[in-house]
Nucleic acid binder design. Sequence first.
DNA 1: CGCTCGCACATGG
DNA 2: CCATGTGCGAGCG
Length: 155
Amino acid sequence: MSALAFFSSPLGWLRVEAGAQGLRLVRFAGVPSDEERGAGWRFVEEFFDFAEAYFAGSQNPYPGRLDLSAASSRQRRLWLQTMQIPYGRTLSYAALGKLLDMHPRSVGAGMRAAPLLLVIPAQRVIYADGGIGGFAGREGAKAWLLQFEKRNLRV
DNA sequence: CGCTCGCACATGG
DNA sequence: CCATGTGCGAGCG
């Protein structure tokens, strides 16, 4: 059995999963269920520390171990590149794609599939014209995160 | 100019 | 297959 827990964030519950190899999944959850303290529990705890700091205004990138083994090599490249975007900054789908020689539309598809909320800062990828872009049907959350980060930059 | 519209393009589900 | 978390250039007023 692997590890499962739910983090209570300002945006609602986040489902957090990890395995022996590292953090596997962080996404919005509905109602939390029972946690499972199986293999990789320490990775879940690492995320909790990170998330608490993040929502308290910390600008540090995620320091823990990730398990991206379920991803295609293309997704991995894209997600790792996305993690290079500095806190509070944004990049367009096209700009991000150019770095990896990917079509902007594919970047969108890759972002949609990103499994690690906050850890892979997909909220920092927006339209070339400054528009918000999508966020798996939660554009409100994306706007919230961007605004939150922008405010913290000033402080 | 600014806005709409259509289509090419590459991935992922 | 096909829908898409895009971009860009053409056409129009």
